[in-house]
Structures are given as structure tokens and as C-alpha cells.
Write a protein that binds this DNA or RNA. Structure first.
Lengths: 239, 239
DNA sequence: CAGTGGTCTAGACCACAGT
DNA sequence: CTGTGGTCTAGACCACTGG
């Protein structure tokens, strides 16, 4: 929760120590030793509690692991639940090149369904963006998204990005939460034409409601070619 | 990581403070104030850093929230990612009654694929359990599961449970991690017969590899009627 | 203004690892 | 044995909040 900021002001000591240690161990192999607390006390001329505050943050973060009597070490990366990604990022993760062909991109007034999903009032401005998505040149999915216009003024004019979540992130609006539903269906005529399959071919239908904090930034429906796409989810017990 | 234990020994002070505060706020409404740090200092006769250590743990845990200049308050429950559930639990969550018809339940020797998935050696003993699952009487899915026999000796003899994860939990083996894959397909003849749909009807295919710690306890493939079942997933940014 | 949490100091003793 | 992290003390000053 505590953050950097204050571009000119002096940095807090525990932040200095924390970032120093982070830079030391970034890229280090799991199991590598981090500096001992007392060594950092001498190097920075601070109290040990200050060093511990710095190290605590990195331990909670999962970067370091303490072993009493031995020292502090780089933790092996904890199993990570599925990252919240958009199509572009997901394809990149799979080593594929994502391309995008915009079928529709305009400002609209929210209808009742979209307004409810975006937690807006009917008639509020939304951005409607429909794209055909390819991976390594092969049609993969049709994505039909609505964005809350109030949160991203000038989005349509700013040149449409490739990676939606990356673009949102640059505005501090990268989704932190998503509610997805997934089911199976068969392609209708229009979908089949775009996806270059036979009508009636199996498809995966994916709906998403993406939030940043309490604000809904995106709702979308996507239809994926089942012969080209399998969804992967990794779930942990906690949150 | 620090834990209670030492049934006879004296409890650590920060643990005493932590558990005192936890008991105070358990059941309290979000936004209710917790005792101030200095109040706890006086009540327990400890240093403020000790109190802060206790409170820090509860803040990291998500139970408390600090507001500088105001105080410490009961946090509203953070959004929870999808719980790791089995069919029985998932149907219960939807307010439906899960029933189960065993199609096959026996001890087998692991074939190459199952052995790899369960992190065993080919020929190791596994439990093969195939069931037709109904919700409110309607066929919903066919689940074909393999369990690591070594981890659950006598499972077949102990009377098959309704909720697999509940039964595993009673042996301390409730999965804490799952790797799922989901895609769309059409039902083959046998599946269609069991699910009481036409062959070629859309279905959702769901594979799971469920672990507790580092041990793989279950691998399964399920096929769901797409007209009766939609998968829901809630994802957070972190883990 | 008084009260809160945020940061920080300069020590201390303990249990435990490894040599 | 030395060095490590785990715990704890008794203060201090700060920025911020609310009345």
C-alpha cells in the first residue's frame, strides 16, 4: 500500500533499502542469499527495524524467504494464479503474434444491457469496439467490447492500441478483477464467415466483465474457434 | 508463517495482541474501529512496535485496514477469487441438487498418460472413477477422474463419497491448486446417450489437474452439456 | 487542538544453523 | 563458536485527521 511518489522529496529509508535489495536479487536464482539484515544496517546506517520493514515487504511480496538461523534467500516463484490478460497478451504468452482487424469502433449510447453491465445509466456514452482477432495469421476469435467512455476520454481519437489492457494500464486503469463466463456453442453464419469455419462448427463463448477497483471498465463477449483455442485457468485455494 | 503451537509454553506477545484484536473484530461490521495502537500498548504493557507487528499481520491478512490520521478499522471483505470446487460443491453453490451415477470405479495400473499427469510411474496404482453427474435430475456432465491411490489408501472400500473434495478434505488432501483447460466440442454418440442430447450437440470439455501442495491428487476430464452449463470464473490481478 | 498511524532509532536477548 | 533471523523495548518526530 505504501508507495513511492514524491519525485523530488527524499525517499523513505525503508523504501531505499527495499529497492536496493530488490535490484540485487532481481534475476538472481532462487535460493541465492540476500544480504543479511545486519549487513544492510551497516551499509545504510539505519536501525535494524528499518531493514526488517524493508525485507518484510519483499517477503510478503513473495520475492524473499527467511530461514531462521540461516539467512534470507531468493524465494522460488510461488505458483501464480492465471494472470488477468487480454487477447494480445494471452497470445504473446503462447508465443503467437496477435493481429487485430477492427470491424466497428464508435461512440454509442448504452442500451439497457450494456448500461447494467458497465454500471452506467441507459444512454450514457460508451465505446463499442468489435474486432476480428488473428493469431499467427489465423482467425481465432471475434471480440465485441464495450468500454466506459467516462473513464477513458479521447480513447477513440488517440489511435486504437493493439493491447487493450496495456493501453488501459497506461491510464492507470488496468483491470484488477474480472468476472468471466464460458460456455460452448456452435458458430452462426456471420461468425463462421469471419472465423473461416463452417456454420455449426463448435465455438467457445466467453463473456467478461473487467473492473479496476470498483469501476467497471470493460464488458465484452468473444467467440473463439474451438479447433484453435483452448482456455487455460490456474486457480489457487485462496484469492 | 509464524504460528501458534507450544501448547504449554507462553505465547508470544505479538500473537497475544493479534489474537485479542482478531477476537474483538470477528463478526464486527466492516468500518468498525479496532483499538488504537497506543491503547493496546497500555492494555498489554508492550512496546508499540510489538503492537504494530500484531496489527500488520491482520492487515496483510485483509482483516483490518489502516487509515492514517484516523485509525484502524475492520476492512470490508476483499473480493474473493473463484473457490476451487468439485461438481457437487459447484452445484450446491448454484442451489441445485447434485446426484451421481457411478459408471466405473476400480483400481487400475496407470497408463503412460495418466502416470505423467499424476506424476507417477507407469503401472502405479490409480483409482479410476467415472460418473454421470446430474443436477436437479437432469444429466449435466460425464466426469472421468483418476486419483493417486497412494495418497488415499482404501478409498474404494470406504464407500464412495458424494463430494470428492469434501472427502479429500477429510483426509487433509483438499486440493489447493488446480490447472484447468476448457474448450468447446460436440458430443460423440456415447456422450450424447448419457447426457440425453443429440450426437453433435455442443459440449464443454473441461480437464483438471488438482494438487495439494506439490502432490497431484486428481486428474480428470469432464464433458458438460453446453445447454445446461456455463462455467464461471473470477480472477484477481494477483494470486 | 489532541489523537491517529507512519517512520525511525539504538540498543537487547533468544533459538537456531553451520563450522 | 559466530552469524542468522525472531522478538521486544522505550522512546522519538512526522503528517494527517477531526473537532
Amino acid at each position: 500500500m505504501e508507495e513511492v511518489l514524491v519525485s523530488e522529496g527524499r525517499a523513505l529509508k525503508h523504501v531505499q533499502v527495499r529497492e536496493y535489495v530488490r535490484s540485487l536479487v532481481s534475476g538472481a536464482a532462487p535460493g541465492s542469499p540476500a544480504p543479511s539484515e545486519r549487513e544492510l544496517v551497516h551499509r545504510f546506517g539505519v536501525a535494524r527495524m528499518t531493514v526488517r520493514q524493508a525485507m518484510d515487504a519483499l517477503v510478503v511480496e513473495g520475492l524473499l524467504e527467511r530461514i531462521p538461523g540461516r539467512g534470507t534467500f531468493v524465494a522460488r516463484p510461488r505458483r501464480a494464479a492465471s494472470r488477468l490478460t487480454c487477447f494480445t497478451e494471452e497470445m504473446a504468452r503462447r508465443g503467437m503474434l496477435a493481429e487485430s482487424q477492427t470491424l466497428l469502433a464508435r461512440r454509442e449510447q448504452a442500451g439497457p444491457g450494456v448500461a447494467r453491465a458497465l454500471a452506467l445509466t441507459e444512454g450514457d456514452a460508451v465505446i463499442h469496439w468489435k474486432r476480428l482477432r488473428r493469431a499467427d495469421g489465423v482467425p481465432m476469435c471475434i471480440e465485441d467490447a464495450y468500454l466506459n467512455e467516462v473513464l477513458i476520454p479521447g480513447f477513440l481519437q488517440s489511435g486504437m492500441p493493439t493491447s487493450l489492457y496495456d493501453a488501459l494500464g497506461q491510464r492507470g486503469l488496468r483491470p484488477t478483477w474480472a468476472e468471466d463466463s464460458i460456455n460452448a456453442d456452435v458458430a452462426n453464419e456471420e461468425e463462421a464467415r469471419h472465423l473461416e469455419v463452417e456454420a455449426g462448427a463448435p465455438v467457445l463463448r466467453h463473456s467478461r466483465r473487467a473492473l479496476v477497483g470498483e469501476k467497471v471498465v470493460e464488458v465484452s463477449r468473444s467467440v473463439y474457434r474451438a479447433d484453435r483455442f483452448t482456455l487455460w485457468v490456474q486457480l489457487g485455494q485462496e484469492g
